[in-house]
């Protein structure tokens, strides 16, 4: 599976997106801390974290025997550049032109 496939697959699950939101709110959490606020089993959270780590959306660091999870937004920047930025410019211009034309019509 390509890097992009792993990334989109990781993002396709609401539970995994929730985990990313939890890390965004408070970065560097342990598995135990992440489990506290989620209605998922510990095993479920472990599996989701493994997929997020494989997609490089979560980076891990050890503090003694504790494994800390950090949100890694670098692959999201790649999605933004590949899938959003190149499309948004022409569309924003089209919307802007439409708005101008409609507002001009209104004045006539």
């Amino acid at each position: 599976m390509s890097d992009a496939d792993l990334l989109f697959k990781a993002l396709a699950d609401p539970g995994r997106r929730k985990l990313l939101d939890r890390l965004h709110a408070h970065d560097g959490q342990t598995l135990g801390e992440l489990c506290q606020h989620l209605d998922m089993t510990r095993q479920g959270v472990t599996q989701h974290l493994a997929l997020l780590e494989a997609a490089n959306l979560v980076a891990v660091q050890w503090r003694g025997r504790e494994k800390l999870h950090f949100l890694n937004p670098v692959p999201l920047q790649a999605i933004y550049e590949r899938w959003i930025r190149k499309f948004e410019q022409p569309r924003l211009k089209a919307l802007h032109d439409l708005k101008r034309r409609l507002e001009k019509d209104g004045k006539d």
Binding site: D3, D27, G28, N56, A59, Q61, R63, L68, F70, N72, P73, V74, P75
Partner: peptide, 14 residues
């Protein structure tokens, strides 16, 4: 303690 510290960890594969 982690709570008294701010940190980010960013990873990229090149």
């Amino acid at each position: 303690n982690a709570a008294n510290r701010s940190r980010f960890v960013y990873v990229t594969f090149i």
